[in-house]
Design a binder for these strands. Structure first.
Length: 319
RNA sequence: GCCGAGGUAGCUCAGUCGGUAGAGCGGGGGCCUGAAAAGCCCUGUGUCAGCAGUUCAAUUCUGUUCCUCGGCA
């Protein structure tokens, strides 16, 4: 069942591209407001890559209560909806301790689901997806796209015929539920957000981010990123597992397996991180509810947060 | 110094049997409803090394200069 509260929980959200300085700003917010930090990052939730995926360090985590960091094994799948359930529990727990829930991360879709809700499509039978994916491999995207055009023309029109992931998703939903994917999207009454609050976004340009990304990768290497990848591989040799899709994970593994030189691995890691940051910026730029801050505007952000939290408490926050 | 191979988009290169050029990568822009650190789309004018010659027309042929890389000294 969807997690939906009749009155949405008040929360503060802090988002931004990777390496934009979310972790330290979140800590400052938590200290200023008496807050708990709740992870809204799809990779930092895994236990095997704390360094490579840039979880807050143990020292940082000791400075305020932290939730949902490093709680899943690499093989566990998580989805936006499942994350919402976990976040819900964390928020309830924080509120019981009179802590301000501060959601922090770079996964735009998680914030989307949290603040706008997500349609309650039932879980899909893994065998159904496996069948569709096998057909996708065998028949190519065009064949399945044609089927989608037949059963859900409006959604088909909204995606590209090469978008294998979304074609499979839309078909599996149709086959399992009997309703087109787009039908579900229109059930706005079923899509209730269970949180409300401001979405602060750190607006960091790629030019500003790039040297930080390089420096961070260097410091991760010094702190033992290679060892982390090696140990993660020993624990989870299936590199198809969800946690392995974190940027830097397979790049380092490729080096450990002798497929690329260390320099090449680090260059790829950096390049992929930069491309990811660009996608994140594009996503957040388009959020109409986002409130943007420059990386150095910590004081402004804190003042805003104090004021917004006050309004949320009084029930006069305008999302 | 001689011989050979090259100098074309930020990079690696293709190509034009003479009619001013195009791929990959990078870069830029964008999409996103339960995989989202995922998946997907759009986007290529550059003295075709310089100069001169032949030609209606040269990046393409010829000569020459410069530079790079091999080989021989």
């Amino acid at each position: 069942m969807p997690v939906a509260a009749s009155t949405p929980f008040p929360v503060l959200c802090l988002a931004g591209a990777t390496a934009s300085g979310k972790t330290s700003l979140a800590l400052a917010m938590a200290k200023a407001l008496g807050g708990a930090i709740i992870n809204a990052d799809s990779r930092q939730i895994y236990a095997d890559f704390p360094l490579i995926c840039a979880q807050p360090t143990p020292e940082e985590q000791a400075q305020a209560p932290h939730y949902l960091y490093g709680i899943l094994p690499s093989t566990a799948k998580i989805s936006a909806g499942e994350w919402c359930h976990l976040a819900h529990d964390a928020i309830v727990s924080a509120r019981k301790q009179h802590l301000v829930p501060i959601l922090v991360g770079g996964t735009g879709m998680y914030f989307q689901a949290l603040l706008h809700g997500i349609v309650p499509i039932p879980p899909i039978d893994p065998a159904l997806r496996a069948t569709l994916e096998a057909r996708m491999d065998a028949e190519g995207p065009l064949a399945l796209y044609g089927e989608l055009e037949a059963c859900d023309p409006s959604y088909a029109k909204s995606i590209h015929q090469n978008d294998r992931q979304r074609i499979v998703r839309a078909l599996e939903v149709f086959h399992q539920t009997g309703h087109p994917f787009s039908w579900w999207h229109h059930q706005k009454s079923l899509q209730q957000p269970f949180c409300q609050g401001p979405l602060y976004v750190i607006a960091a340009s790629l030019d500003w981010l790039e040297p930080r990304i390089r420096a961070r990768i260097d410091s991760m290497m010094e702190s033992g990123a290679l060892k982390e990848a090696k140990e993660a591989f020993a624990r989870c040799p299936n590199t198809e597992a969800p946690a392995w899709s974190g940027i830097g994970c397979w790049e380092l593994l490729a080096y450990l397996r002798g497929r690329v030189s260390l320099d090449e691995a680090l260059a790829l890691w950096c390049k992929h991180t930069r491309a990811y940051a660009k996608r994140q910026n594009t996503w957040f730029r388009g959020r109409k509810e986002a409130i943007f801050f420059q990386p150095k505007q910590e004081a402004d952000l804190l003042a805003h947060a104090v004021q917004d939290w006050d309004r949320l408490q009084k029930g006069v926050f305008q999302g």
